[in-house]
Design a protein around this nucleic acid. Structure first.
Lengths: 199, 199, 199, 199
DNA sequence: ATCTAAGCGAGACGGTACGTCTTGTCTTAGG
DNA sequence: CCTAAGACAAGACGTACCGTCTCGCTTAGAT
């Protein structure tokens, strides 16, 4: 994710990659154990067996270290199943996969809260994740229109908000358990909603 | 919202209602100025011209004081426009109204994060807001089925997640501006998605 | 010694005098155990069973907390034995008494070093101790001249430097043990040196 | 002063003498600028344009690097003016010369403080300076007794403490300015004090 | 007309985490 | 084996808040 706050110089002693591994492990285990709010930089450093300076050399804040070690994007390739419905189901399932892990459940709400007050980090989040996901959806919708499945110009953001939002809310606001068919049912609902709007 | 941590006794000096007003004003102004994360109980007390004990006598935590002074539920009466589509549009608009205010934008992500690690507060949130909203949706769906608009049994939670989630994500994750038609378009999409599923 | 960095207000909860006692005890015991250089504010707070804020509310730095709890002035009354020699011996003994305690031996060199780079604290040290001691010596010399023991005008600072310096150097630079007669012999040497100069 | 912690090996690349010069200059300038307490090894290395390892290869601590680059002994030859009074005046003037330089004023109190908690360095300081100075005084007193100026056996340490202490205290505790006659007046006072004691 | 319980603003209390700094060691590439 | 650069583990720094408490005082209803 290349979240490092300053790229390591080529001169001097190189950064120890083992520290990165240890930090990642510490963040993941602590997140699940104590939750985002009770996660502290001190505890991460201690659990990782690393000095605080080593941690702060890599990440400027709790939000950064969690972001870099927990969040994964939803793939680079847009799904291409041959139908709008299939593509949205596939994407819904990917999003469920990303958000349903224990670490993500523990991390994401707190992360979102911290992003709210941190403009630079927000931009990186936006660039690394949101914009990428939006591009996938735009691609899916473009292909559907090319196929003749959709007539009108569709608001990509509305689809994005519906798809991501339904998963987010199911898992993190309503805190319902992730069923096997969750991504499928959400993808279907959005696809049907679009088809209704288009006809 | 009756979030007070202990009901005031009938004996002794009664609580000063002006303190409640001052606290509410301080919370609202500070939330917009510094955001939820940087909001502190100390600052609320100072801004309100109130001792910390007075604040803690009313609210046990930042989450509570913000919850009680910012969050409003989406009405008690289910919308009844005569059609599923109309009802969902109406509910979508109510949700947009609640979440689009500057104070709500500043408060809600942080609040959600704190709820995640605070089971008792989570239960109150659940009872006061989520369950109530869910009941509205169940009522809307029941009426639609009675009218013959829907055949199948619909998952209320899925509708809830789709409707609330789309608004939440649009405003608080994608951080897009709230257009006048936002609630309407989201309500339509969900209604059409359900109709598609039902046919 | 009134070294508090800000006088406690009359409003609000008053300061707990037991904290002062606990801090004083912690400083004294830690000084002897680990020495001034290895003494830390963290350790003082921990040993005293006191929060760091409570410590910093009273003292702005290690130098202040040590100064206030270790250093004692050499009495307010000038010795008056009836002779210059007797007065200087008496004063020399007082200075030895102050500087020979284990806590003073551990504290004074480090304290002097920190005073060197802290002008405000230096001024307080100067006012509280140096100037007071100088006044005692001036009084002793004035009486000796009145008695006819001294003819010339004597440089008070030179006497001060000789008397204090000999004790300081014996104990803290040469690190020789404080014999019972140390103050007496130093007082004698200075008195004889002055008499020689005066004749 | 030969404070190097390990003598440079004869094999491999020889040590760069320019590094020593740069370190000495950096120590002297930084001492005067920021004082002993605020002097850091990092800053010395940076100012000298030298790696920290290069610095630590030569000196084990701040005390050592300052000691080696600031402190000078008071001459190897005992003064021999033909009289006790003249010899002590001469020695007093040498001590004033050593301690009155801006670098010495900045360095000596902090150095003394660090010596207090560092036994090995204390021994080297003792050997390199204190013992040497004491030997000079012993020689001066021996010659005075041979000349018949003194009858009794004089405590060399008392003379040492008086002479060194008066200068130290004048300059570093009372922080009075070094007058031209300072060494002379102090030497006189001590000489007269001894003569008084001897008669 | 007290008495007494609970309210009030102010601010000290013991703690904890913050992000920075310094220490002394170690690891790189290069002379 | 030296050099400059800089990462490393450790831990103290002084600050900011936490949630509790203690102070002198006010405001009521109950006696």
């Amino acid at each position: 994710m290349s979240m490092e706050i300053s790229e390591p110089s080529t001169r001097g002693r190189p950064r120890d990659r083992r520290a990165d591994v240890a930090i990642a492990g510490a963040v993941r285990s602590l997140l699940v154990e104590v939750g985002y709010t009770n996660l502290t930089m001190e505890a991460i450093a201690a659990r990782a067996g690393v000095g605080k300076a080593t941690l702060y050399r890599r990440y400027a804040s709790k939000a950064e270290v969690v972001f870099a070690n927990i969040v994964h994007d939803s793939g680079v390739q847009a799904p291409d199943t041959g139908s709008l419905r299939g593509d949205l189901i596939e994407l819904g399932q990917r999003i469920v996969n990303d958000l349903a892990s224990p670490a993500a459940v523990a991390a994401v709400p707190g992360l979102l809260a911290d992003l709210t007050g941190d403009a630079p980090l927000w931009d990186r989040f936006q660039t690394a994740l949101t914009a990428r996901e939006r591009a996938l959806i735009a691609e899916i919708l473009r292909r559907a229109r090319d196929r003749g499945e959709l007539r009108d110009v569709i608001d990509v953001d509305l689809v994005h908000a519906s798809l991501l939002g339904a998963v987010f809310t199911w898992l993190l606001i309503l805190r319902l358990p992730p069923t096997d068919s969750l991504g499928e049912r959400i993808g279907e609902l959005v696809a049907d909603g679009l088809r209704g709007a288009a006809s």
